[in-house]
Design a binder for these strands. Structure first.
Length: 195
DNA sequence: CTCGGAATTT
DNA sequence: AAATTCCGAG
């Protein structure tokens, strides 16, 4: 009932406030990927669950199991070979004031997303894979774009999320998809920089 | 490790 | 505006 994130309703929303989804990769002059997008991407793929993963229990909370690796991947994406966890974590800290993240004190390498400020529009991490909605696939490359910041300047009031659908283990309904991950299995190791 | 100020860079 | 780099303090 509540989790209608995938229904046409929301996905077919008229227009996106600020379509960064489009400019995410293409638009030459547009901004580069943001760190939290990247984190979400990693979190969304199980290939990286040994490097970074959601923390069971509190949702939105994740643990960086291998800080060096995450930093390396981030550095690769941004073409910043000198990236390390020290720097990456500084960027993460800037998110505290922006209300995108906050720290889970006491737990090392553990942060938590502030979903009250962010709206999940597509491919929520908990479901890992949203079915069709071809219209919305726009021109996204491999997979659908993860999120959409809801409060750009005006905040509607969508603080609603898909509630916890995490490890409730519905079993029946949705079958766990394991989309395109079969043949070659090049591991692809995710992303490369096009610099 | 974690936290931010400050100066730069993109 | 979002990050990167450098770094002293707790």
């Amino acid at each position: 009932m509540y989790c209608n994130c995938f229904s046409e309703g929301i996905l077919a929303a008229p227009v996106w406030p600020s379509d960064w989804a489009y400019e995410a990769e293409s638009s030459p002059g547009s901004r580069q990927i943001q760190l939290w997008h990247f984190i979400l991407e990693l979190l969304q793929k199980e290939e990286f669950r040994h490097v970074i993963a959601w923390q069971q229990g509190e949702y939105g909370e994740f643990v960086i199991k291998d800080p060096d690796e995450v930093a390396r991947l981030w550095g690769r994406r941004k073409c910043k070979p000198q990236m390390n966890y020290d720097k990456l974590s500084r960027a993460l800290r800037y998110y505290y004031n922006k209300r995108i993240l906050h720290k889970t004190k006491g737990k090392k390498f553990t942060y938590k997303f502030n979903f009250s400020k962010l709206m999940v529009a597509n491919c929520p991490p908990w479901k890992v894979w949203a079915p069709p909605s071809p219209r919305l696939l726009l021109r996204s490359p491999a997979l659908c774009q993860p999120l959409v910041p809801v409060a750009k300047q005006s905040e509607p009031l969508h603080s609603m999320l898909c509630t916890r659908a995490t490890e409730t283990q519905p079993a029946g309904e949705r079958t766990p998809q394991r989309p395109p991950k079969a043949s070659g299995d090049k591991e692809s190791s995710g992303f490369n920089c096009e610099c």
